[in-house]
Design a protein around this nucleic acid. Sequence first.
DNA 1: TATGAATGAGCCTTCATTCAT
DNA 2: CATGAATGAAGGCTCATTCAT
Lengths: 208, 208, 208, 208
Amino acid sequence: MERTKKDEDTRKKLLDSAKAHFLEHGFRAASLNQIIKETGFTKGAFYFYFRSKEEIFDALVGETAAGIEKILSEESSEWGVYDRSERAFHMVSAHLGHLPELVDLLQANKDEARLLLTCAEGTRYENYLGRLKEADESAGNENLKNAFGESPIDAYTYDVLMSGYYAMIGQIVLSGASRDEMLQRMTDIQHVYESGIAGLIREKTLKD
Amino acid sequence: MERTKKDEDTRKKLLDSAKAHFLEHGFRAASLNQIIKETGFTKGAFYFYFRSKEEIFDALVGETAAGIEKILSEESSEWGVYDRSERAFHMVSAHLGHLPELVDLLQANKDEARLLLTCAEGTRYENYLGRLKEADESAGNENLKNAFGESPIDAYTYDVLMSGYYAMIGQIVLSGASRDEMLQRMTDIQHVYESGIAGLIREKTLKD
Amino acid sequence: MERTKKDEDTRKKLLDSAKAHFLEHGFRAASLNQIIKETGFTKGAFYFYFRSKEEIFDALVGETAAGIEKILSEESSEWGVYDRSERAFHMVSAHLGHLPELVDLLQANKDEARLLLTCAEGTRYENYLGRLKEADESAGNENLKNAFGESPIDAYTYDVLMSGYYAMIGQIVLSGASRDEMLQRMTDIQHVYESGIAGLIREKTLKD
Amino acid sequence: MERTKKDEDTRKKLLDSAKAHFLEHGFRAASLNQIIKETGFTKGAFYFYFRSKEEIFDALVGETAAGIEKILSEESSEWGVYDRSERAFHMVSAHLGHLPELVDLLQANKDEARLLLTCAEGTRYENYLGRLKEADESAGNENLKNAFGESPIDAYTYDVLMSGYYAMIGQIVLSGASRDEMLQRMTDIQHVYESGIAGLIREKTLKD
DNA sequence: TATGAATGAGCCTTCATTCAT
DNA sequence: CATGAATGAAGGCTCATTCAT
């Protein structure tokens, strides 16, 4: 352990102050001057620990973001082992299987989740949820095409549905609910989507 | 014709430049200096036409926002004439009835819609979609309670579903689709929600 | 009469608005933009009647200032006819003789008097009272020297006393009192100065 | 010694430049840009030492103002110990007793005194002398009433005389005279006021 | 480790004035 | 007689960052 206790104190105070300001005003509108002043330290101290305003944001959310991405990549490596034409069916169950893990992570890092989802404008995490969605979506599109030839749901409708799904996940994450409540609600919307999409496909098929 | 051509030119150039910058960087991060410099006019010229940075944003989106709000208020005055216990059932059809009108408005004002939904941080339109959702949601909650005593869907789940719905509407609006495609997709997600919510209620009821 | 009635209306409205703003904020802090906006006319209209911000101030106070200066110059031309060595004794009575006239002028132009005394910073009337005092003072010094050889009151003390005198005159003018009250108070301070200066000279003489 | 020499240099240069500009143009008309440019430093440097334009004015005059107020409050706590009906008689001697102290302070801070008296428009020291006068005056009025029942000098005349007195004190302070000259002149005007007011009361009494 | 002095570009806004029409 | 478009300099202030010590 190289860092002394005092070290950690300073760093931690800076992180805490930054977190509070970013949560209140967002990354861009938050003033680094204010953040630093509030700790009682000086600019020099800040720049000893962090190379820039963005870096301290990164220091706050980086781990959580990495955790999220790790879980999502585990998901995809799970359904990735199946044959191209079957992946679509395994995607959902892989996702559901990892939900508890994801919820645990977000529960343990509520502030960081909020920073990522609503305070990141001006950082490289800008539109974080949107980009997660897009990654997920393009994989989903691919898998659907391989499974059904022409997908029963066109790419745009799928896009829209994914937007809604991710928005709801975001909403749940930011709701302040307990772990179990979160899981329950996430399962609920899964049900809604299952029944809903089945209904939609039925409808579309009848029309033709 | 009160305004001379030259008049309109300057004002329009300022509006165009502002629109471009707001779309690219958002209201807060956009630089008024930059906006003005690009038109070839001076700061004084800007302040002849607009009282402030926020006012030019308002000049860009105000009409569109008013149009949206007018449509939504027409919706609610439609279901408002029914008995308290029946309003919930008329809400959806009133909403559907006005969708074409809404879509037409948004189609005709794509840039303005995007400004409202994604570039308004720092103006009084901040979180515009969220506030529309909240207004809609509290009315919806009220109506559900009056229709079913205890609503079949708890308030939080309803909240989450509304977030998803509004996110999807936003996504569709911003998608660059044609009028008819937009309407089609909006109808599609209506179907998904109908079937989906029916499924969710079935599920919940069976459990008990 | 060259000016039409409408003419006078516009000009008068501009003058009134300017007067109100100058009285409230002083010349420098008053905003020409505001002054003009309040009349409902435009900058062009203003600059048709007045060449500059300062000129409208001048238009407001010029006549009153000229009136004051005329009275003061009449005073001095009155004692000026006497022999050098006797002028000092006629100065005071000339001053007293013209007081009613001066008071009448100031009573009839209260606002203008206030503009001159307390709102002129930034114009050529800046420190108006001070400069009146100085003119009066240098004449007084001259006359005293001619009357007594070495004046019983040294120049600096005379300077100080004059400052007090003019400050009191200013105070009375700005007090909002009636014509007769003003005259009464001015006479009162004349008495104070007479007795007071006599006392001072007695004191000084005894010491030597 | 906490501050390095370089430290003091910058701060002092800024203060000096500010003092010069405030003395020449007054607080409001002085340009902060100009003040800073003249030191060779940048805006950032200024705002490292001072929070605002007003704060540097405060830094210049604050101490002197506090000193003046301390002396005046000592005066009033001196006559404050006497019985209500006797305070009027002790006011003057308390005032005279503290004059040397006051003069010493002002002699040692001539520039600051001038800033306070003639350059403070736009700061919280605006009309500084006037407010000192008013405080003094209301105490004086109270004491006179308690001493004489109905005061021999009506409130308005007293007000006028106080205006003159404070104007003269101001004049003396700004005159550039030496300590002893200042004291001499202040004593002189005390004599003038004593004899003068006595004369005025005599006059008034005879009339009735 | 941490200080604190200094940078310099940039922020939005207001000003008095000009002038073609 | 009056409009209204446009100027351009200046206003006070905040920003994230650098660096010698």
